[in-house]
């Protein structure tokens, strides 16, 4: 079947070419670069979509419920966001910030467990499971976009403080716009993460009533890990909100947004390290990656 021939390498390579085009903005001007960049990003997104569709159709359990699928879905959302932002603001090099994260997520997906969740057997559990996963996607996308806006804010503010004109091919949005994005994404991330945490607890409680074997133990480190993430995001949003009308408020918010991405990276790495009944088996061995590439 044609779709089974699409691999992670197909769309990762397309995104990598688009990233190379973005980076070349800093070196030289080109009349055709935008077309090449958007062309490769679109081709990558199409292959990515078909790959996810094929995965969803081929899985026997709940479609796209494994950690690997969730990372690929997250990468897909960010790649789609990149394409939209690039078409809307062709002069802003948003891909220099977003595409490396997309590629890292695709890389993470190849290491992550790819067994669909076996816990969600009935329609109620599945509905809660989908809700829980969707909220996870919302807060992670918000964290990434907030971090990108934060990094751009710091670069733009640094340039303005040095009183230098904009670098060729590296024109950032205004501080006002970036600050708005940072504040909104931090708030969305905090609320969506909290909701994801609560929905996860509700889902687990439903499963627990059916029998302890079908649920995640309440002492599982996944729950602790998510609790810490939620706590960080709520504190970060609270601090940003409290400092909003202070002279250094936006700078602190920018740092909080960037650090949130690092916390997210640590959160993902921790997920690889701890054994859990949540979301399938442990990380795949490297040998399995060869299979994925095929």
């Amino acid at each position: 079947m044609f779709l089974s021939g699409i691999s992670v390498v197909c769309f990762a390579a397309s995104y990598a070419v688009a990233l190379g085009c973005e980076a070349s903005r800093l070196l030289f001007r080109s009349g055709v670069r935008s077309m090449v960049m958007v062309g490769f990003a679109s081709a990558g997104l199409l292959a990515h979509t078909l790959y996810l569709g094929w995965r969803a159709a081929a899985e026997s359990a709940v479609p796209l419920s494994s950690p690997a699928d969730l990372y690929l879905l997250l990468a897909w959302l960010l790649a789609a966001g990149y394409l939209w932002l690039t078409l809307a603001n062709p002069r802003t090099p948003v891909g220099l910030f977003l595409l490396p994260i997309v590629l890292v997520l695709v890389g993470v997906a190849t290491f992550a467990p790819d067994v669909p969740s076996p816990l969600l057997q009935d329609s109620t559990s599945r509905a809660w499971g989908w809700f829980h996963a969707a909220l996870h996607l919302v807060w992670t996308v918000a964290v990434v976009l907030g971090a990108v806006a934060g990094a751009m804010w710091l670069i733009q503010a640094g340039r303005l403080a040095r009183k230098r004109p904009p670098t060729r091919g590296f024109r950032m949005p205004s501080l006002e716009r970036l600050a708005l994005v940072m504040h909104r994404t931090l708030a969305i991330a905090a609320w969506a993460a909290a909701a994801a945490f609560v929905s996860g607890i509700i889902l687990n409680a439903i499963q627990y009533r059916r029998g302890a074997a079908e649920s995640v133990p309440w002492t599982d480190l996944v729950i602790v890990r998510m609790g810490i993430m939620v706590l960080w995001l709520i504190v970060a949003d609270g601090v940003a909100l409290a400092l909003r009308r202070r002279p250094r408020g936006d700078r602190v918010t920018a740092w909080l947004a960037v650090v949130s991405l690092l916390v997210l990276a640590g959160w993902i790495a921790w997920g690889f390290a701890i054994p859990s009944r949540h979301g399938g088996s442990a990380a795949r061995p490297v040998v399995a990656l060869v299979e994925v590439a095929r």
């Binding site: 001007r29 303005l160 009183k163 004109p165 205004s174 006002e176």
Partner: peptide, 24 residues
Amino acid sequence: TGVGRERTSIPSVAVADFAAAVFE
């Protein structure tokens, strides 16, 4: 080419390269 792209008068640079980088 970028021969005519960057601004070169003080008022235009002040508004386009600095003030517009702070305010949307």
